[in-house]
């Protein structure tokens, strides 16, 4: 199974290489101006030249992402547990959660800057706003996903609601939690960049915005490539964490696939 998933990685890599090659050839054949469409080789070259700046900005973005996502995780767990324990909370909070997702971030992000300035806070809030919903819903559904009979079994053993939560509802929710974590983490990077784009002192978002205004399309694309790299790395790291936290889930799934 693992060997196959690594082998599968080659297929998209080959596609990517072909795509980049076509792009490179098209730029040379049409003679497009680099301000409009730079060749991939030029993007790589300029990106490497400005690597120090890009890495600094990437680090800033990464820290915004991490803090914002951390806040989001804490909120998601607290809200999801509250909803799991209280039907009143469920009835009251779920509609509000859904409503929070109808807020157009594109409109709210500039307001955040007005309210909270150019510091970390507005960016953390944007990241949290775009990521806590999938994680909260993933957790709520994960808890509800618990086998009712397993709950009955624990209660027949004399377990109270908290024991039941810790012994069966929490572990039952973890596989779905990791799925929602993966959705959330990709939103988190995009959210951070978006918030920076609107206004920031540092970060890949503001870097792209500045380079765009200077017609350095090559540097904008270099920053895009770094963004993609960061997102993919974070995404893959959730698999690593999942493997450490719930090794049983992976083993079981693998055994089920082999049957």
């Amino acid at each position: 199974m693992r060997a196959r998933s690594w082998a599968n990685l080659w297929v998209p890599l080959v596609f990517l290489t072909v795509l980049v090659a076509v792009w490179e050839a098209a730029v040379h054949l049409t003679g497009a101006r680099p301000q409009v469409l730079p060749a991939p080789s030029r993007v790589a070259e300029s990106g490497w030249e400005h690597r120090a700046a890009i890495v600094d900005h990437a680090a800033a973005t990464l820290s915004v992402t991490a803090v914002g996502f951390g806040v989001s995780l804490v909120c998601a767990w607290i809200i999801a547990i509250a909803i799991d324990f209280s039907p009143l909370m469920r009835r009251g909070l779920i509609p509000l959660l859904v409503a929070s997702q109808t807020i157009p971030v594109i409109a709210i992000a500039p307001l955040m800057i007005i309210w909270f300035g150019f510091g970390l806070l507005p960016k953390i809030l944007v990241v949290a706003l775009v990521t806590f919903f999938p994680i909260t819903i993933g957790l709520v559904e994960g808890f509800a996903h618990t086998d009712r009979e397993a709950s009955a079994l624990l209660r027949s053993m004399g377990a109270g609601r908290i024991r039941e939560f810790l012994l069966v509802r929490l572990p039952s929710a973890l596989p779905l939690f990791f799925t929602s974590l993966r959705i959330g983490i990709t939103y988190a990077v995009i959210g951070a960049i978006f918030a920076e784009y609107v206004g920031a002192k540092e970060g890949l978002g503001i870097y792209m915005s500045v380079q765009k205004n200077a017609f350095r399309t090559d540097l904008v694309l270099a920053a895009v490539a770094v963004t993609a790299l960061v997102s993919i790395t974070l995404y893959l790291s959730t698999y690593l964490i999942e493997r450490l936290v719930i090794p049983w889930h992976l083993k079981e799934r693998r055994a089920a696939n082999e049957r």
Binding site: D147, E149, A150, A152, L153, V168, L174, H249, E252
Partner: peptide, 11 residues
């Protein structure tokens, strides 16, 4: 109580 399903927790 022993239910029909074994309900062994996979974790």
């Amino acid at each position: 109580y022993m239910p029909q399903k074994d309900l062994l927790f996979p974790w």
